[in-house]
Design a protein around this nucleic acid. Structure first.
Lengths: 342, 342
DNA sequence: TTGTACGCGTTATCAC
DNA sequence: GTGATAACGCGTACAA
């Protein structure tokens, strides 16, 4: 029955309600500035026409989008997923929409996506880690788009960040490891290039070793991508060494899970023959066998606080504070004393 | 030094290069329509001013955004993450940007996000599963935004879908289970309300049982959210039953991982005392102990094909075909014959 | 090949 | 309270 094919605009609503576009706009954006009677009429028209405001036009006119962008290295890891879900929830409550892109750990892609998100009118950006070109920060500044860095806390950094010190966290875990008696330590790290979280975790291990008077050479380090298979592969190489390390500290739980899987395949008992540790304390950590001794990171809390800080900045209520999140070492079963003959 | 605070526009570039805005626009969008010399000059200006086109303005003028939206139930599950990553990769190659939102399995939220994405000028949408209000499809049609449904294949459905039949897949797995001798079957399903994948999986089990002449009452069904803890809890309740089921079929690998964790806690041997199966074959399935017998879904392939189909539709090259992806049962160690005394 | 001028759908600033 | 109307930044007929 004469179904109108095209999308209704503000103008259509205005005509249908017998008012001006300005009034319709006000009904939608500041309802109390318009008298009850006309508002009813307008809303009726909005309803019956099935009107939805055109976002691009809104952004252009209002120079504001109520949109927050986030660029994460990968969607394929529970740690970002968990925190981001909470980030989004918090944002929703404040009336913002979250747009997510994943950079696949590629700085070039990240750079492009930041520009895309800004061009799209994002009011603020969530970034992961500090390591990136100064040029990018200048770009953000010029466009006056506030940003907060998460999953990494660095009081030295110019930019506000919400997270924790990866070095401190890993150092604490490494202290436990060394205190348990381990001296031949191996580490399977994520790629440190352009990744301050991964770098910090390596540094943490090194610091703890120094504290205990261990030589740097006592650490065998393998760098690899954060994938289960890579963790397994690295673990195999480590176990082929003579003498074998007595503990394998992994850059995250995913790598540790790979290590554990390989240990099972090689019929190496964990932790009796070799200890393994993780980082992040994602659900995986409790599910593998033996359950992982790891560092617990409160991702949800981080997501929530990052959202609060970022919206505050967007709304001019904050200059950008840095927030430090507390982490803690979780002792489960994958870490024990080194074997006796060691 | 006189750093210009504001964001440069097409006009600024035009003035800087001594040409009209139209020429600048052409340089950016159809470079071959403009002579080499002027183009050089223009590009120079673009570069030195650090010009980035304003997206909202582009969308408004061109009525096209080269943006694809996706709404997934949750980011917190590897199955969507994996497929979406590939979906995005494929999109990038075709020049599209992906915007992702998660609905937290809430139809209301999904509805709102669909409107948001459309209002934002998304050229096409990726949706998960068929179950949703007809009104939403009408809305999409009216706005002429093509969409494809993924993770679910239904030849009966009006809308194009890329995926597989969840019922067929689960039925095949259930046949293996029954063939192995199981008669007291329990299932831990995801919430079926508004979720055709979960529904299909339940139906698959029921169909297989019917094929083998088993009474419907032989199936004990628990519905719960797709979370590890929920899987563990459901498993505990199941193990408290007398007689116990000899097999627990889980709606996905996450639930199965929870079941396995609880089994370990209860010191119930899997598969000696009770068998467990999963669905999806995410990495988790191979990592838990015992490794899960499950249904392998080629998520990457699904993501890729969905992207191809959707872009084809957006560009008017396809009316919207449905594509069926092949799945297969993966036999690992969590499924065995039922215990003898059964 | 290049320039002019209009339109895209809103918001916001004025008057009324 | 409400209504004109000028931006907002870009694409694109159409003209030159």
């Amino acid at each position: 029955m004469g179904k109108n094919r095209s999308v209704p605009t503000l103008n259509d609503v205005a005509k249908a309600a017998g008012v001006s576009t300005a009034t319709v706009s006000r009904c939608l954006n500041s309802p109390d500035q318009v008298i009850e009677a006309t508002r009813q009429r307008v809303m009726q028209a909005v309803e019956s026409l099935g009107y939805t405001p055109n976002f691009a036009a809104q952004v252009m006119a209002a120079r504001r989008s109520f949109t927050i962008g986030a660029i994460i290295p990968t969607m394929d890891n529970a740690i970002f997923a968990r925190g981001l879900q909470e980030f989004q929830n918090q944002l929703r409550e404040s009336g913002y929409t979250l747009l997510v892109s994943s950079s696949a750990y590629d700085p070039e892609v990240e750079r492009e996506q930041i520009r895309t998100l800004v061009a799209r009118g994002a009011d603020g950006l969530l970034l992961i880690g500090h390591a990136r070109d100064a040029e990018i920060y200048e770009y953000l500044e010029r466009h006056q788009v506030p940003s907060v860095v998460a999953w990494s806390y660095d009081p030295e950094a110019q930019r506000p960040s919400v997270g924790f010190s990866n070095a401190d966290a890993m150092r604490e875990l490494a202290r436990s490891v060394i205190s348990a008696g381990h001296r031949r330590i191996a580490m399977i790290s994520g790629i440190t290039q352009g990744n301050d979280r991964a770098q910090g975790r390596v540094v943490g291990v090194q610091q703890a070793m120094a504290e205990f008077g261990l030589e740097a050479s006592a650490l065998t380090l393998i760098e690899t991508a954060y994938e289960i298979d890579k963790g397994a592969e690295a673990f195999r190489r480590l176990m082929a060494l003579a003498p074998r390390p007595t503990v394998v500290m992994c850059g995250n739980d995913v790598l540790a899970a790979g290590a554990l899987r390989e240990a099972r395949r090689l019929e190496i008992q964990v932790p009796e023959q070799v200890s393994v540790t993780g980082f992040d304390d994602i659900e995986l950590a409790e599910i593998v066998s033996p359950a992982l001794t790891t560092v617990h990171v409160p991702h949800r809390e981080m997501g929530r606080k990052a959202a609060c800080e970022l919206t505050a900045m967007v709304e001019g209520k904050s200059e950008g504070r840095s927030i430090c999140i507390n982490i803690r070492v979780v002792n489960r079963h994958s870490l024990a004393k080194p074997p006796c003959q060691s």
